[in-house]
Design a protein around this nucleic acid. Sequence first.
RNA 1: AAAGUAGACUGCCUUAUCGAUUUGUUUUGAAUUUAUUCAAAUAAAUAGGAAAGUCCGGACACCAGAGAGUAUCAUAGCGGAUAACAUCCGUCCAGUGUAAACUGAGGACAAGUGCAACAGAAAGCAAGUACAGUUUGGCUGUAGUGAAACCAGGUAAACUCUAUGAGGUGCAAUGCUACGUAUAUUAGAAUCCCGAAAGGGUAAGGAUAACUCGUCCAAUUCUAAGGGGUAAGCAGCUAAAGUUAUACAGUAAUGUAUAACAUAGAUAAAUGAUAAGGAUUCGCUUUGGCGAAAACAGAAUCCGGCUUAUAGUCUACUUUUUUU
RNA 2: GGCGUCGUGGCCGAGUGGCUAGGCCGGGCUCUGCAAAAGCUCUUACAGCGGUUCGAAUCCGCUCGACGCCU
Length: 140
Amino acid sequence: MKLKLKLIVMRQTFKKGEKLKSKKLIEQLFERGKRLKSFPIQLVYLEIDHKSDFLIQAGFSVPKKRFKKAVDRNRIKRLMREAYRLHKHKLPNITDLDTKKHIFMFIYMGSQMENYTTIEAQFLIILKNIKQKLVKNLES
RNA sequence: AAAGUAGACUGCCUUAUCGAUUUGUUUUGAAUUUAUUCAAAUAAAUAGGAAAGUCCGGACACCAGAGAGUAUCAUAGCGGAUAACAUCCGUCCAGUGUAAACUGAGGACAAGUGCAACAGAAAGCAAGUACAGUUUGGCUGUAGUGAAACCAGGUAAACUCUAUGAGGUGCAAUGCUACGUAUAUUAGAAUCCCGAAAGGGUAAGGAUAACUCGUCCAAUUCUAAGGGGUAAGCAGCUAAAGUUAUACAGUAAUGUAUAACAUAGAUAAAUGAUAAGGAUUCGCUUUGGCGAAAACAGAAUCCGGCUUAUAGUCUACUUUUUUU
RNA sequence: GGCGUCGUGGCCGAGUGGCUAGGCCGGGCUCUGCAAAAGCUCUUACAGCGGUUCGAAUCCGCUCGACGCCU
C-alpha cells in the first residue's frame, strides 16, 4: 500500500482524487489553517485527516475582486496547477511524513497576470519552505 | 486614391514530451459488497461568434388552491414568415443624409379627465392690444409672444380609450438513493356577534402575488423561535424547431423533398503546460534578416433572436478628386 | 446558474416633466488680543450613452457599477 502510494506521488499527475473539493474541509482550512507567503502566491495549509488516498489534497484559488474576467482566473489557476503538478515530488513523501495527511490551498495574491516562469519560481520557494516547516513540526 | 454605406466569411496551423475530463476496450492489478469501486495500459472526443448581458420569445419541469372578471404588464401603419417573439421579410408614410443608405413604441385628443415653466391680452370656459379694410354696432385680415394661438387647437414613452396577448415559479425546477426519532418541539395569533338554551343575526378566520366572485381548509392554518444530519451520489444532461449540399415553390423572410454528417458535458469547475517549425500582422533594415504580438473573450438545462465587446479578409454600392 | 433592488457634490439626503432643496466637511470674510461658537459668503453634483418631448434628475431603452436572495 505504501509503496504504491509513493509511486503515484513520484509521477507527475494530478487527478480528481488529489484535488481539494470538500466544502467542509475548505471551511476548516480557512478557519484554522496556517499561512505561508511568497509573493504573489499564498499557501494556506492544515494537518487534518481526510478520506482521500493521497497524502496531500491541494486546491487553487484566484480572487474575483482582482481578476474580473473568467478567462484570466482560469489561466492563472491552470498555470498554478501545472507548477504544482511538475514540482510536487519535492514535497515531503510518506517516509518523511509518517502518513500524516495535509490539505493545501494556493491563493494568487497579485493583481497582475504573470507568465509561467515567474509563477514556477515562486512555487519552488514556497515548496521548499513548506517542506522545512513540516519536517520541523514532525521532529518537535 | 480618400471618405462613407451595406452584406458575407475566418476567428492561427503542424509535430514532440508531460498532463486533465468524458466515453469505449482489455484472460491487466487491487479491494471487497461478486458486480461494483479504485488503479494501469490503450483508442476517440474535448470550448464561442459573441460561450457575455439576462433584454425578449419558446421548449422542458413542478405547483390541481393553477377557475372567472377587474386591475396590472406588454405590443401597436398594412401584408406575410415562424414553435413563438419586442425578431425577420416585403411595402406605404414621416424624419436624417449631397448620395449609397439609415432611423421610427407609426392606432385614437370627433368619449372623458389632466398638463403647458418663461414670454404673451389670451394656452379654456373666458378675456381681448395695435393697425388696416368695410356698412355705426359689428365682421374680416395682419402684427407682436411662444414649441404650440379665436382654432372641431397641442400633448397619449400624461391618465385614458380601442384591438391583441400574458396563470405562477425556474434545472439551486423536479424525481430517486443515502444519512436522520423528524407533518419533531416550544411560543403566539386566527376560527365572529347576540342569547341561560332552543335558535337568530352578520357574512366573518386562513390559503389562492392585488381586489371581487368562486373554490379549498376544520384541530387546522399562519407567524416566530429552535435541535440534528448531509452539504454526498444518480437521473434531469444533451440528437435538437440540428448542420451542410442540391432541387422545387415564393420578390423575400421561409417552407417542402432528397442525400450526407455525428459534433463538449465540467461541478472549488476538464478543454492545459513546455519546446521546435510554419503562416499572418507590426517595427527596424545593409532587402540577407532581426525583434515583437496574438483582438474580444471561457460552456454550466437546451434552442430562436436582440444588445454590447472585438482582430482581420473579401464583395457590392455612393460621393469627391485625379488620369485616360 | 437563476431572481431582484439601487445609483443626485468629498459624506448624508429631499426632489409633481419647467433655475437640483437642506445639513455636515472644506476655502474666504466679519466678530476676537488669539481661538472656539455665531453670522455672511463661495466651490464642487443628477453613473454613462441614446430616444420620446418645446423642455427630462424625473418617462422609455441599452451599457456600466454596487448590493441582496436561493440549497
